[in-house]
Each structure stands twice: as structure tokens, then as C-alpha cells.
Amino acid sequence: MGKSGQFIKRWKSLSYDGKVIFLKSAVCLLLIKTGLTLLPFLQFRRLFHRITETSTVKEVSPQQIELTVWAVDTAANLLPFELLCLPRALAAKYLLRKVPSLTLEIGIEVNPAKHFEAHAWVENNGTVIMGKWPESVSYHRLWAWK
């Protein structure tokens, strides 16, 4: 079964709320890709900070977090343009913005034999939930976007 077949099977098994989370993920990724493409990064960062800033804290179940991560990754893989780690991490951060323990991390690979390589990932209480990498790779954290 190919990617689209797996997606259709999973889509059919999703609850109404799960389908809404998937659709929100797709729209969020489109808007983030557009913002990153059209705006200087500093301006995008300020705008993103403003729209993700919230005084409301919400308990979100591990299943809801897992579903959101799946939805963002799956939507990113199905959309007809490249969405690498940063837009995916930003979308997850936005959709889960009321979870106080969530941070978006940006780092660089620690490997002198390679060219500069950056990576973005999302952590929940110090555990990577989006943007995981193989154990053979090591990233040095440069910035945490809380």
C-alpha cells in the first residue's frame, strides 16, 4: 500500500476532531510556507510570535499531541511543495501553542566533515516529538523558541 493508500485508510479511521486537526495542519503549513517565502525572517518571526502568544494554558493528552504531529507530518508530505523541518516545527508549535512545556528548537549538526546543516525540531518536556534524527547525528542547540 502506497503513501496515499495509507493516508486514506488512516483518514477513514479518524474522528471528526482528528480530521479537523489534519485540515488545520494543512492550512497552517500553507500559511507558514507563504510567510517564510514572502517575508523577511525577522518580520515573520515577530508575526509568528504575536499569533502564537497566549496566556491560556491547556492540558493536551499525549494522544492529541501524537495526532497533531502525525497530521503536520502527513500534510507536509502530501502537499505539492517541499516542507522541510522548519515549517513543520512551526506548524506543530502553532497548533499546540497552549501546551506550556512545548519548545521549538533550532540547532546545527556537529560534524566537521560536513557542510553547515541546520535543523528545527519540537520538544515536549525535553523529549523530541517532531523532527527526530538518527542517533548517529548530533545537533548543537542554538536557539529555543518558547
Results as ranks from 00 to 15, higher is better:
90 L>A: 10
145 W>Y: 07
3 K>S: 13
69 V>E: 01
57 V>P: 04
56 T>Y: 08
144 A>M: 04
41 F>D: 04
101 S>M: 03
135 E>A: 12
54 T>M: 09
84 L>S: 09
91 A>N: 11
102 L>I: 13
22 F>C: 12
25 S>W: 05
115 H>L: 14
57 V>L: 09
21 I>F: 02
138 S>V: 09
8 I>Y: 13
144 A>F: 00
124 N>A: 06
66 E>V: 03
103 T>A: 11
26 A>F: 07
48 F>K: 06
91 A>G: 04
43 Q>N: 00
64 Q>C: 12
72 V>M: 01
32 I>N: 06
117 E>R: 15
36 L>A: 07
17 D>H: 15
6 Q>E: 14
123 E>K: 13
144 A>V: 08
84 L>N: 06
15 S>I: 08
86 L>Q: 02
21 I>V: 15
12 K>I: 14
34 T>D: 01
137 V>I: 07
27 V>D: 01
135 E>F: 00
37 T>M: 08
52 T>I: 09
130 M>P: 01
4 S>H: 10
146 K>L: 00
16 Y>D: 06
122 V>R: 00
81 F>P: 05
117 E>V: 13
42 L>G: 03
38 L>H: 05
127 T>Q: 14
11 W>H: 07
58 K>T: 04
78 L>H: 10
5 G>F: 15
146 K>Y: 00
106 I>N: 06
65 I>L: 12
65 I>A: 11
29 L>T: 10
83 L>G: 03
7 F>M: 01
82 E>A: 13
137 V>A: 07
139 Y>N: 03
137 V>D: 11
50 R>F: 00
42 L>E: 14
40 P>N: 04
47 L>P: 00
79 L>Q: 02
23 L>F: 10
53 E>R: 14
36 L>V: 05
74 T>E: 13
59 E>N: 14
145 W>L: 08
116 F>N: 03
13 S>T: 14
73 D>H: 07
30 L>K: 10
38 L>K: 12
95 L>Q: 08
31 L>D: 04
119 H>I: 06
73 D>M: 03
